[in-house]
Every structure is written in structure tokens, then in C-alpha cells.
Design a protein around this nucleic acid. Structure first.
Lengths: 125, 125
DNA sequence: GCAACTGTATTAGTCGAATAATACGCTTTT
DNA sequence: AAAAGCGTATTATTCGACTAATACAGTTGC
């Protein structure tokens, strides 16, 4: 069961998008695996303090992306193949890291300075 | 004159916020300096293809933050002291880099892997 | 002085994210 | 079979970002 214990909304992106990101990053990290069950829409919305419809939207998008399967009565489970995992990892690194690099470049850093900076802040996160 | 030539809205954040970020990052990078003039609200909104009121909101926030000064008839100019610059740099690195590191950590990377990844993607941005 | 710019202010409307309240049908459990 | 929990669907409302149109006041330059 995916607990969502370390999920924390930051307000910068729509909550349903943050749920998608949370699941995708967890899949890449290995903390979310094929066959893992997800909390029900009602339970998760109560746990996160958000509206059931917001969770529903996130889960609907996850299903559309082929990452979960849902059946009324049962719950929702992760459906992660090796190919999907590779695809997810590539997408994440492409989007996130490139976005980060753009910001760092705009502040006038070079590659070595950026790499050093990452190491410096690695502990505090 | 700050040209906003390399400004590109990406839709993930409110446009007025992206303008704020653009100016702040430019200030940290040194491409935006004390005394630099900004395009007028009307000119900039036309150049970026957005509503004048959106630019107005961004400029109002910049003025509130003490980063620009505006006078009707003249335009708006940057007002950057050394202390403000230091403060800006600290804020940017704290927020942006820590945010990045959190994402990379969640994908299961370690500090060295992240640093290598930054170098790898540095060229493509 | 007057035109052509500036910044500033107000009001109304659109759109998407999120909330809220229900309702219905399916599956599991007892 | 019945209850409880599940996914799913619908409609209405709130809120902020953004657009739109317009008006007014100050500065610059001819």
C-alpha cells in the first residue's frame, strides 16, 4: 500500500498534478512498485485534507497514463512494466533536470559551479 | 534597457510570477544592473503578447519588493543595492536549488549522480 | 503649450483549479 | 442477502490568474 506519508503539497502546482508527480517520482525511485495498492479516493482525500474530486482527477489521469488500474469495489493498483519505468525515468530527468539547468544558467553559474552547489545543498533537503 | 529577449513563458507558473523570477535571476546573474531601464508596461505587454494588466501586476510587485522605481511619464528603473543583491542571491539558491534537490532525491539519485546529471544536461539547455 | 508618451486605477468578464454535495453501480465481506 | 466500502458521475459554487476596455494623471520632447 502506498501510504503518501511523505507527500506534502507546496502550492506551486495544482494538487492533482503534484499527486501525479509524487507517484511518478516514487516509481522511478523504486518506492512505488508494480502491483502496489493505492488508498481509496475517499481515504486519501481525507488523509491529505483535500477534496475527493481532486484525488479523483489525479487518479483518472494516472489511469489514462496507464500507470494504475481501478475497479469499483476493489481499489486501484499500480501497473508498471519495465518499459513504462524506463519511459518515466527518461521523462522525469529530461523535464526536471533541464528545467533546473535553465534556472541555474540564468543566474550566471557554470556547470562545475552548479554541480558543486547541488552537492552543497544535498544534505539540507 | 532590459530587453526581455530571452524571456519565454512556460505556463507552469503565473506569468506575472515568471516576470518576477526573470528579473530576479537576471539581477543575480549580473545581466540586470542597478539603474537599468525597463520597457514600459504597454510596450512590454505587446512584445510578450500578454495583457498590460499582467505586466502591471508584475511591476507593482517588483516595486513593492523595492527592486524597481516607477514614475509616471518616465519609465521604471532598477534599484539594486549590494545588500538587496546578496539577499536575492541567497533566496534564489535556497528556494530553487533546494527544490531541485528534493526532486532528484525522490528519484533515488545520490549527490554524485545528480552532479553528473547536471553536467550531462548542461549543454542542451 | 501640446502631442505622445509614461504610470496608475477601475470595472467586467473568461477560464481553470479546487471545493462541495449528492447519487449510482460494482465488489468485497460478513 | 445486506452492509460497507469502492470507483464513477453530475451539478453548482468559490477563487485566483488572466484578459479586456477604458479612463485619468504625470513627464518628456518638439
Amino acid at each position: 500500500m502506498i501510504t503518501f506519508d511523505d507527500f506534502k503539497a507546496d502550492g506551486k502546482l495544482p494538487v492533482y498534478q503534484q499527486i501525479l508527480d509524487y507517484i511518478k517520482r516514487g516509481a522511478v525511485a523504486g518506492t512505488v512498485a508494480d502491483g502496489d495498492e493505492l488508498p481509496s479516493r475517499r481515504v486519501l482525500s481525507a488523509r491529505l485534507g483535500i477534496n475527493p474530486n481532486t484525488v479523483q482527477k489525479a487518479f483518472a489521469l494516472l489511469e489514462e497514463a496507464g500507470l494504475i488500474e481501478s475497479r469499483a469495489g476493489s481499489g486501484s493498483v499500480m501497473t508498471l512494466s519495465a518499459e513504462k519505468l524506463e519511459q518515466l525515468k527518461a521523462e522525469l530527468l529530461e523535464e526536471e533536470v533541464l528545467g533546473m539547468v535553465r534556472v541555474l544558467k540564468q543566474t550566471g553559474l557554470d556547470a562545475d559551479g552548479a554541480a558543486d552547489l547541488i552537492r552543497k545543498y544535498w544534505e539540507e533537503a
